[in-house]
């Protein structure tokens, strides 16, 4: 397994190179000239050219790309073109407590965990009572929930739970470790509400696939109770798709959720990425592309390794 992991890690390098190259080319085709932005309305052509030189955007493309690679290796992406702040600090914060990455993760991780626990439990329940009234009605509710735009949840719940009933703050964040959850509670509820429907349907399908397998029939024939069959056998065998879903989601959870962050004024990575793209802030885009790519590949590898852990039939070669 170690050999496998090392080989996969080595594969990451050419993939990363490809991603950085594509990002670089895309930016150069569609990004606009940052020097023009920075120079302002009254700058002369000579001043703009001086800024280009300073930013390193006036040289040949291969030199610029070389600089990008150097930034990745040294993990020093310089300063943002839009905010003039240091890029790594924009992502990881002045201190850990106020890090945008921590804000995003504090929202998405608990929300995702709650969604997962609820969705798996409801999924098992529906499988248990498949075809019955409960199954059908929850299916309808889930389908309905998926069909409603996420904006409706946000606008409605923020208005009623935050403003009208005053149960939660309308928006904002606190960096106090306890007070923080007061601000995150409503965004977490909305996140769960937004993702629960599709997850329940997903797990129901996975579990239904399993309950018709021979091993389930055997287990029942042995006289095991339904509870034991569901929790000890079905759930364990359904772990592979569960791991796939969970592990692949993690990088996206780390990079935040733009819409919820934006409506609740949570200074997370979702907004950071959005602003960087809007302002053609290439240093931030470069850093975030690199971080996302590494995260994605790492968790992909992790999920492959976990397959082998949970399923002895899977062998990593």
């Amino acid at each position: 397994m170690l050999k496998y992991a090392i080989r996969r890690i080595l594969y990451m390098f050419p993939i990363l190179l490809g991603i950085t190259l594509v990002t670089f080319l895309l930016f150069n085709v569609a990004g606009g000239d940052p020097a023009v932005q920075m120079a302002g309305k009254y700058a002369t052509e000579a001043e703009i050219e001086a800024i280009r030189k300073d930013l390193g955007t006036s040289g040949p493309l291969y030199v610029q790309f070389g600089n990008y690679i150097k930034q990745i290796v040294t993990f020093d992406f310089g300063r943002s073109w839009a905010t003039k702040q240091e890029v790594t600090r924009m992502i990881f914060g002045e201190e850990f407590r106020t890090s945008p990455m921590l804000v995003s993760v504090s929202l998405t991780f608990p929300a995702f965990f709650i969604t997962l626990v609820l969705a798996i439990s409801i999924g098992l329940l529906l499988t248990f009572y498949r075809g019955g009234v409960l199954d059908k009605s929850i299916m309808v509710v889930c389908l309905g929930a998926i069909s409603i735009s996420s904006l409706v949840y946000i606008l409605f719940l923020q208005y009623y739970l935050g403003y009208k009933l005053g149960l939660f703050p309308i928006s904002g964040i606190s960096y106090d470790w306890v007070d923080k959850w007061n601000y995150l509670a409503l965004p977490i509820i909305i996140f769960v509400a937004l993702s629960l429907g599709s997850n329940v349907l997903f797990f129901r399908t996975i579990f239904l696939d399993e309950v018709f397998q021979d091993y389930v029939r055997t287990a029942r024939a042995k006289g095991l109770s339904n509870k034991v069959v569901m929790f000890r056998h079905v759930l364990r065998n359904a772990l592979i798709p569960i791991i796939t879903l969970v592990v692949i989601q993690i990088p996206f959870l780390i990079t935040g959720t733009l819409l919820i962050e934006s409506f609740f004024s949570l200074p997370g990575l979702g907004g950071l990425i959005y602003n960087a793209i809007n302002n053609a802030d290439f240093p931030v885009i470069k850093a975030m592309t690199f971080i996302s790519a590494v995260l994605y590949m790492f968790f992909q590898l992790l999920s492959d390794i976990l397959y082998a852990v949970v399923d002895p039939k899977v062998q990593l070669k």
Binding site: I114, V117, L118, S121, I122, L125, G166, L167, F168, P169, S174, V178, D179, W181, N182, A185, I188, I189
Partner: peptide, 27 residues
Amino acid sequence: MGCIKQIITSLTIGLLSISMFTACTSD
């Protein structure tokens, strides 16, 4: 079933009580 109910109840109580507690402090 009971387990699910318990989870939902404790989550809701947890979130609401944090909210109430901190609402008082932010007063």
